[in-house]
Design a protein around this nucleic acid. Structure first.
Lengths: 153, 153
DNA sequence: TTAGCATATGAGATACTGTATCATTAAGAA
DNA sequence: TTCTTAATGATACAGTATCTCATATGCTAA
């Protein structure tokens, strides 16, 4: 499991370097630091969480650099942005290839992820019939998670 | 069609007035102006669009009032907030009772709405089995609409 | 190694959305 | 019309994300 993750990280790093080279960008200190931080995170993260983490660990990167590198990583296809209804930018890793959806708890704001189902194709067919070219889709449930229900009492 | 809409608006207005009365709130100038503006909009709108519209038409309402009345309308169940991945607050009318999903064009930012399907229940069952209490859900497709594809050439 | 150039960076300013504060205004009951 | 209380606007503020620009740094060529 750990071994697989290390392999994955190397694959992603190579992908990132290829993208930078192709675009005539440099492999700078900031890009390496932030790439490592992003790879260290699992599942979802927001730009703000990443900024705070970097400040807390006293990594030598500034707020604008975090955002700039996040955009690099988006361009390189290493992370993708997901749509949530708050004012933060949410991201997740792309390497987890399986399409999936999210359920967010309105109390603790944690996520549950679950795999998508072939039934979603019904919507694809419908939209494509209308001439809409689909680039992605996401189901977003919201509610109260098991733990928070227990806390309610 | 127009007649139905007028009837709907009156129903919604009555609902709003009932809500205000029940909560001991007043039927103020600002609430009336903004209620009318909201009813004039079809489908989706954002808080910012509404603010800009009011300023443009030189309606006698300030930015904070727009937000305050939007919260009143939310409380009254006349509009609901929908989750999208940008930093704006998105709203839609509730009177369109049928649950539905959205597809947003990444070029023109317009929406296509489409009805939900009973197949979504598969996810409900899955989440409920995990102890997650569902309060709502929304499917969000993104892509390029027919018109924007034609413009691309 | 070094020089020279183009890119990356940080500090600070700025944009933008949404809220809080509070003195003033106005709705609605008596 | 008067009085009480809620609603409002002006203003300041909070928080996230971006822009600007002088400086620092990576990279290439010699």
């Amino acid at each position: 499991m750990l071994k697989v993750d290390l392999q994955m990280i190397e694959n992603e790093r190579a992908k990132f370097l290829r993208h930078l080279a192709k675009a005539g960008r440099r492999v700078s200190h900031g890009r390496e630091i932030i790439f490592d931080e992003v790879m260290r995170s699992h599942g979802h993260f927001t730009a703000e969480e990443l900024v705070k983490e970097c400040l807390q660990k006293k990594l030598k990167v500034s707020r604008p650099t975090v955002f700039r590198v996040l955009n690099d990583l988006l361009e390189a296809g290493i992370i993708r942005e997901t749509a949530f209804g708050d004012k933060h930018r949410h991201f997740e890793h792309v390497y987890d290839e399986k399409p999936h959806h999210h359920a967010q708890c309105i109390r603790c704001h944690n996520f549950i992820e679950f795999p998508d189902r072939k039934e979603d194709k019904i919507y694809h067919q419908y939209l494509e019939k209308q001439g809409f070219k689909i680039l992605g889709h996401e189901m977003h449930f919201y509610g109260i998670c098991k733990d928070c229900q227990l806390k309610e009492v």
